[in-house]
Simulated assay, not measured.
Amino acid sequence: MLVRVSYGTAIAMGLVKAKLLARPTTAYLMTYWPGKCSNDCAFCAQARSSKADLDRLSRVTWPAFELEKVVKALPKGRFGRLCLQTIDYPGMLEDVFFLLKAFRPLSLPISVSITPVKRKILEKLKRLGVDYIGVGLDVASERLFKALKPDFEWEEMWDFTERIVDVFGPGRAVIHVIVGLGETDRELIETFEEAYSIGADVSLFAFTSLKGTRLENLSPPNLERYRKVQLARWLVEKGLGDRIILDGDKIGGFDLNGIDVPPRVFSTHGCPACNRPYYNERPAREPYNFPFLPEKGYIKNFLTQLNSQRLR
């Protein structure tokens, strides 16, 4: 049986010889299928209408290896977690169950990102050692959702999230949100508020344009907006959403009086031990999500920049 391994994970495991700029703290794996996903999400390289390479997800290459070889090499990576990504195809669930059984002897916590499944499937995933579920909402706008994810329904994703919280507990459903798909800042904040109100968490991604996808000509979000959205997500998580100042549908600023903003606000936020190095950006550029804690001076400079723009 084959399983895909993200390029950075494969380097950390010794399956590929190359230099690591930031070591992944989670092993990122993906189910193998020799064709495209049965779904047609507009931004995804795996979408059924995509002309992008089969071994791509976001800007990362995912080479395939024999499962036995992967299981044997995983301890070399000194990972704190396994994260199994899935695409939809006939027999996908059976493959997931088989993989989880193969990973159990490693005694690592496991996250699975999967499209909506019934409660009994979630309960089986839990019995097989899964403790977090990633929810591919992706589009933080009901207005745009159907056009960008035509095979899914907005309410279906939220119902699925509630099932996960019910089975796994609060904070164990991690909703993936991609910034830069045409959504407004207000829609992002409303999505954050809905997620945290039902006991879910939110993990942010920056849109990455990929040649061969329907959105190949869409530009990624600028870094300034992304930083503001990261701060807004953290404020909503902490129950401080009223400190976000909206100017129409855009974030106009923040009332941060008496609030100590920690550096982790701008780092990768997801399941425990997740750092996703350079998933959305080229290594030569400042990352949207730092795979490590930025220096405290970075926070100070960011807040100074906000003030210089006459933002509170």
Rank of each mutant, 00 (worst) to 15 (best):
M1S: 10
M1G: 08
L2Q: 13
V3E: 02
V5S: 01
V5L: 02
Y7P: 03
G8M: 05
A10Q: 01
I11W: 00
K17V: 09
T25I: 02
T26Q: 11
Y28D: 06
A42Y: 07
C44W: 07
D53F: 04
R56W: 11
P63A: 10
A64T: 10
A64N: 03
A64R: 06
L67S: 04
E68H: 06
K72V: 07
K76S: 12
R78L: 13
G91Q: 06
G91Y: 12
M92E: 13
K101M: 05
R104Q: 15
L106G: 11
P109R: 12
S111F: 00
I114Q: 05
K118I: 04
R119A: 08
K126L: 14
G129I: 02
I133L: 12
D138G: 03
S141W: 05
F145G: 01
K146V: 09
K146Q: 13
F160H: 06
T161G: 09
F168K: 11
G169P: 06
P170S: 13
A173Q: 07
G182K: 13
E183R: 08
E193H: 08
G212P: 12
R214L: 15
L218K: 15
E224R: 14
Q230W: 00
A232R: 04
R233C: 00
L235N: 04
L235R: 04
V236H: 09
L240Q: 13
R243H: 13
I245C: 08
K250I: 09
I251K: 02
N257I: 09
G258H: 05
C271N: 04
Y278H: 09
A284Y: 05
N289V: 04
I299W: 05
K300L: 14
F302D: 00
T304I: 08
T304W: 11
N307W: 10
Q309V: 00
